[in-house]
Amino acid sequence: MNLLKLLGWEVERLTKPYLILITLLVVTQFAWLGVFLWSETNMYEEMRRAGTPDYTLTFGNYLGGTPFILSIGVAVTAMVFFSFWIWYRDFQGRGTFMMRLLLMPQQRMLVFGAKLVTMMLMILGLFSVQWIALKLQYIAFSSWLDSQMIPMSGSFEQAIGYDRAFSVMFPASLFNFFVHQVLIAIAVLFIFAFVLIERSLWQRTVLAPFLALLMIGVVVVVPMIGFFIIENYLFMEETLAVFTLILVIWFIGVVWIGHRQLTKKLSV
């Protein structure tokens, strides 16, 4: 069994729920766009009749709406859930195929790698779909305001840049995008490590989730405590170097935890 076959298998298993998530995300956002434009148009018409049409809209007003923010929150929550589910569904169902793979120690890290790549592909795919949806929403937004002669200010890039969530998803530079993807990958690896620790302990204690959370918490918190202690004594370049070192420690640490749990501790 090679990595590409495992990757294809993992992607196939998650395709249906992933497409459902994408569909719900896009439909919700366009539905909110319609409601937003209808509401703002009515408000502008009332102000125009009252003789006070001094009213300017930006695309950021639409992005700041509660339904839109909730749609992004649901998408992020779904990615976190998928990061857990991609492991738990194998263990909960005691699938024959997964059991055969886990009985062969030399194949276990291939399973780990396939699941990690699958999650990163899903996250990048979500970012891509969201970017296309945002572009289409901006076109519809600006076209409707022009047709109704409602003043509009600001550009698409400005609206995206002012929003913190989108500045993480779509940073201004390729380097920042790479850094953000590394941080996301480390977050996914922490979830993987938690699941593997919990699965290796669950047959021995009912406290497995709490112990797993404690172990992962130590890996996260200890380097950060050290960073905050010495942060005030560092220059900007030194701060960046130390933070980069912490990222490397986290990455190596969670991969080592995953390898150890899969090859040494996890029983099937």
Rank of each mutant, 00 (worst) to 15 (best):
L183K: 14
M119Q: 13
M152K: 10
M122V: 03
L262I: 04
L213Q: 08
I249G: 03
T41V: 07
K115G: 04
G51E: 06
M152Y: 07
G258R: 04
I197T: 07
I69E: 12
V76H: 04
P53K: 14
I197S: 05
L14F: 10
S167I: 01
F166T: 02
P223T: 10
K5H: 11
R49A: 15
Q130L: 13
I257G: 02
F170M: 03
E10H: 04
M215P: 01
M109Y: 07
V117I: 15
L124D: 00
M99L: 15
V111A: 10
G253I: 04
R108K: 13
A212E: 03
L116M: 15
F84G: 02
G93K: 08
D90F: 07
P17H: 15
K135M: 07
R94F: 12
V219Y: 01
W250Q: 05
L126R: 08
G258Y: 02
S200M: 05
V11I: 14
F156M: 06
G93A: 13
P209N: 13
M236D: 09
Q181C: 09
Y88G: 11
A193M: 04
N61L: 09
K115E: 02
K135T: 04
M236V: 07
M79L: 08
F97G: 06
Q107P: 06
P67F: 13
E45Q: 13
V26T: 06
N42K: 15
L145R: 12
Y18M: 10
S173L: 03
V35W: 14
S143H: 09
F127P: 00
I150L: 12
M152W: 13
E12K: 10
Q181R: 08
T96H: 08
S147D: 14
L240D: 10
M120H: 06
L3W: 07
E46L: 15
Y138G: 02
V26R: 01
F251S: 13
P53F: 05
L103R: 15
G95H: 13
N61H: 13
F170H: 01
V117A: 14
M104G: 04
E157Q: 12
L245V: 12
S155W: 03
F112C: 06
S39K: 14
S153I: 09
F141I: 11
L24N: 06
M1L: 12
L134G: 08
A208H: 02
P209S: 15
L245E: 15
A165D: 01
M236E: 11
W32C: 08
P17N: 14
I184M: 06
R94C: 11
T118H: 02
V111L: 08
L134A: 12
F68W: 08
V206Y: 08
M120Y: 08
V74D: 06
A165N: 05
F190H: 03
I186V: 10
S167N: 04
E198T: 05
L21N: 07
A193Q: 01
I132D: 00
E40Y: 14
V129W: 01
E231H: 05
A114F: 03
A31S: 09
